[in-house]
Design a protein around this nucleic acid. Structure first.
Lengths: 211, 211
DNA sequence: ACCTGAACACCGTTCAAGT
DNA sequence: ACCTGAACACCGTTCAAGT
């Protein structure tokens, strides 16, 4: 029961501690400003220690991106299972999952969408999580096309891309604080971004504009 | 006519030379990798020289961002003047101006949309150029609403925001090379992004889907 | 007025040496 | 197996000193 006897060295799990500390620091000063030395310092470990767990700075960032996209994927799949209604409603839920995730994890959202700080190509899990969300999107689009709610004349990939781009753009504008410039009060940012997304989906639906 | 006599010191215009060299280097390795020392080296000047022209690294990046948004604004205003058709057509042209600018100036687009590498709040010209493009958007949306082409029941700002987000998201996906993942062949990226944007605008138009 | 070049306080990364 | 801490080659930034 001697705690220091079983503790490997300094940490039970230095790897995870480094990831956590990086996110903490990023929340305070921004991801670009975070240095591995500072992370190591905060965790109470020497400057060389992180390199026992990550090949380099990019590898650490890639690990954070992997975990982030994993969480997004899980959230998307969970929300889809509990979603009600037709394919168009499911698409709205999908957009909502994405936006809510981005707004509640701004650091991770920024990292993942930077595509500069980490190495997308080298990570299979990253690619798989992305592909999973994409295939949910494309399946719903195909369903909606078959139900006559989205135009069958347009390739499903393009409709999916348009939806994804819209959600992504809105998330970005919200996270970067651009919404006030479009007349949105700070108190209603999340609300407005969400209803803007609903508007975009609704607008694509064949036969809407019932006014 | 002695050239060294009238030359201020090393350069006729070190400031501009630094900006140019930064963009050159960024195109090769990415903006984050660019160091001021490397820029100075390439320009053939000492490591301290850049600080005579820019308070710090961010100030240099801010100057590049200013020039970039100025160019975007000019392009948008020029293209609007030569545009034909109704307000919806003008909105398509607006999206096209934006997308084409982003695709032909990826470094500048990335910088401007990073909002981390430079100081948006400190630059009046930056804010003015942004506001100019935004007000073009909002004016066209208002026109389209009055012509019954866009829903009057939705605030113009939200429609503008939705359009801006879509264009922005598409530009980002294209510049970051995400289009192949959506079934777009590399040879047709620009084409597809543009037609996707047209699709989004067309889709919002009241009374379309003529099939 | 504009630039140099040393100086300072940082980095990321490596690697022998320690436990 | 995992960590330390010195070492190396870099940074951004400042500032006396030069022209």
């Amino acid at each position: 029961m001697n705690p220091t006897a079983t503790r490997p060295y300094h940490h039970g799990n230095l790897r995870q501690a480094l990831l956590d500390a990086t996110l903490d620091l990023a929340a305070e000063t921004g991801l670009d400003q975070v240095s591995l030395r500072e992370v190591a310092r905060r965790v109470g470990v020497s400057s060389g220690a992180p390199f026992r767990h990550f090949k380099d700075r990019r590898a650490l960032m890639t690990a954070i991106a992997e975990e982030a996209t994993r969480q997004l994927r899980i959230r998307v799949e969970r929300d889809q299972q509990s979603a009600q209604g037709d394919a168009m409603d499911h698409l709205k839920v999908l957009g909502r999952s994405f936006l809510e995730w981005a707004l509640s994890h701004p650091t991770q959202f920024r990292l993942v969408s930077s595509r500069q700080l980490f190495d997308f190509e080298s990570s299979n899990s990253l690619k798989q999580h992305f592909a999973a969300v994409r295939s949910v999107t494309l399946a719903l689009v195909a369903q909606a096309q078959q139900a006559g709610q989205l135009p069958a004349s347009v390739p499903g990939e393009q409709l999916g891309m348009a939806l994804r781009a819209s959600a992504y753009g809105l998330a970005r504008m919200a996270v970067d604080g651009q919404l006030p410039q479009w007349g949105v009060p700070a108190s209603a940012e999340a609300q407005t971004a969400l209803s803007c997304l609903d508007l975009l989906v609704e607008t694509m639906r064949i036969g809407r504009y019932p006014d």
